[in-house]
Design a protein around this nucleic acid. Structure first.
Lengths: 333, 333
DNA sequence: ATAGCTTCTGAAAAGGTTTTCATCTAGGTA
DNA sequence: TACCTAGATGAAAACCTTTTCAGAAGCTAT
């Protein structure tokens, strides 16, 4: 590997001068500059990243921290983040937290060992000690899909509760009274969406029947399918289901189909997220759209803002959500 | 940030000794070792990654290079790779190639600037110059989803052609004669799968009708939907479609459904990949299974093998594929 | 002629680690 | 007693950059 010293020697100048040329500093004769540039090009010289990041005390990379459930929603979010982070000149480094103490420790170690320039947290962590640490070392950060106002971190999110309420009310307005819920555990959004569902019922004077809610093991289609199957077994009156994520909804529809229940003729289903596969299911999934791409972009912009500005902007961006009507809901009565 | 020197000072020893303790070298009194370890723990010291990687001339990270089509197949592949790479003690760094000359140059620059310990290439690149360069600098590498025997790189892949042939023959054996093809461009697997389709027709004495093949703009559901729509417009006799990827198939089914054509009653569809959403579509997608998880694992194992062994194993692992029967195909006649 | 700028350049330090080499001590051997 | 060896430790070099500081050369203003 060719180093800056090699270039210096070849050009008959010092390493400092080469560095000045490369970093576009002033005070170097244009004739010298050209000579150095030529040699750099000829030899294919590229600055060593480790050396640079050591002396500069930064790594030009943003960490994206995410609990290990690598689903379709996250895929879309990542694609957006990576794209815009790169536009800002940063590399993206993913950290998949695997929900164990040791994985959290490992994360903290990596956080210290690599001089990350910033972090995006996707989904809320169980253990707030990490946030305290980040706060303490004053590392640029933004939260994505949730907020924690007490830390003063910038955040981008939707109103989870209101969105779930919107989905549920959509069903109520179409005459549904016996509405099931399939949600998951461990993540705040799961609980918030459950709360939104309950609020919708309450707002319309509908009783809450615990027999109609399923707390699935995860948020993926398989969990949705299993959840729907047990819901069916309970033999409660049921005309519609709100699934807390589109993936759960897709699984639920499959379970209904397998059980000979027609969607939406017999049971209606609405999801939340609007991942891109949702417009390709049959029937098309009626759901609440979360602007995934824009949220990814905004997250990237906010960390980079903090970094370049040198201090937090403390900005919380709440994106609004809308119903997107497809074919999985019917109007009754 | 606390450095090795701080620990040394605190423990009343030299930095060398601390380093020896941390790297589990011999020749350090157990009493001293314990003292150092205690202080390391107390201060939360973690070695600086940039410094280590500079002196060691390695980065403990594997690059995963992939053309920018971040689809569901790749999501599953990534999840597997990242998981096993971490088990081997490596970090994963993704490089999304965005199909421009400049993006390839940028990739090469990053390749040189970060001392990657190894690379996994997913999907074949248009431009073989990168492979030549890798070969030249003798960087541990493995190819995933394709092979290039002339370079002697280890590879994990399936027989694309045979798998497509298998899918097509499955339709032929069920009495289908007028079989459409929806594939995509730019990627070798797309062309190989097309070839497999043609071979199946030929092997069974069926004529190849170019009016029945669609070369879609991409490999995602949207492209599949658009492709199917134009195929329908051509008004050729058609009883089945082979879609080169499951995502294309999902889009095709949607288009059929929108056009009032029943699947599988009127037209049968088979895909290839068996991504995990395929068992959740309605009807369930009959497809050819590619062992995605195992392939991801194997790719990780092979690079790590090369690294630890110090020389290439030159091993090409061809995974076998099987039909997984679901509900999107009917038997006629 | 002197002092004081400007422009350009190089030497050297710094950043945090690993490793080599040298040194020191204690114990064993001739 | 003199010498050697093994174990334990520290000093210093090396990895590759950037940046600070100092100095040289050429110019302008006094």
């Amino acid at each position: 590997m060719v180093s800056i010293k090699d270039i210096a020697r070849l050009a008959g100048v010092s390493a400092s001068t080469v560095s000045r040329v490369l970093n576009e500093r002033e005070y170097v004769r244009s004739e010298v500059r050209q000579r150095v540039l030529d040699i750099v090009k000829e030899r294919g010289y590229v600055p060593n990243h480790a050396a640079r990041s050591m002396v500069l005390q930064r790594s030009f990379t943003i960490g994206v921290v995410i609990p290990y459930l690598f689903n379709m929603f996250q895929r879309q979010l990542f694609a957006a983040m990576e794209f815009f982070l790169e536009q800002h000149g940063y590399k993206t480094q993913f950290f998949f937290l695997r929900w164990s103490e040791s994985s959290e420790q490992a994360f903290l170690r990596r956080l210290k060992s690599e001089a990350l320039d910033g972090i995006i947290f996707v989904h809320e962590l169980d253990n707030p000690s990490i946030y305290h640490y980040i706060k303490e070392i004053n590392l640029p950060v933004t939260l994505c899909t949730f907020e924690r106002t007490e830390f003063g971190f910038p955040a981008v999110h939707i109103d989870e509760e209101a969105s779930a309420k919107l989905a549920t009310e959509y069903l109520i307005q179409r005459g549904h009274r016996d509405i099931g819920l399939i949600t998951g555990e461990h993540f705040t959004f799961g609980y918030q969406r459950e709360k939104g569902y309950k609020k919708a019922l309450a707002a319309h004077g509908l009783p809450y029947n615990p027999e109609l809610t399923i707390r699935a093991a995860s948020y993926n289609p398989e969990a949705g399918r299993a959840g729907m199957l047990t819901l069916i077994k309970r033999k409660q009156p049921l005309s519609a289901v709100f699934a807390a994520t589109d993936e759960l909804a897709i699984g639920a529809i499959k379970a209904l189909y397998e059980s000979g229940v027609r969607v939406p003729a017999d049971v209606s289903v609405v999801g939340l997220d609007d991942i891109d596969i949702s417009s390709f299911t049959t029937p098309g999934l009626t759901t609440v759209r979360q602007p995934i791409f824009e949220m990814g972009k905004k997250s990237a912009d906010l960390v980079c803002d903090w970094i370049s500005r040198g201090h937090t902007t403390d900005k919380v961006e709440q994106f609004s959500t809308i119903i997107v009507e497809r074919e999985s809901v019917r109007t009754i009565g």
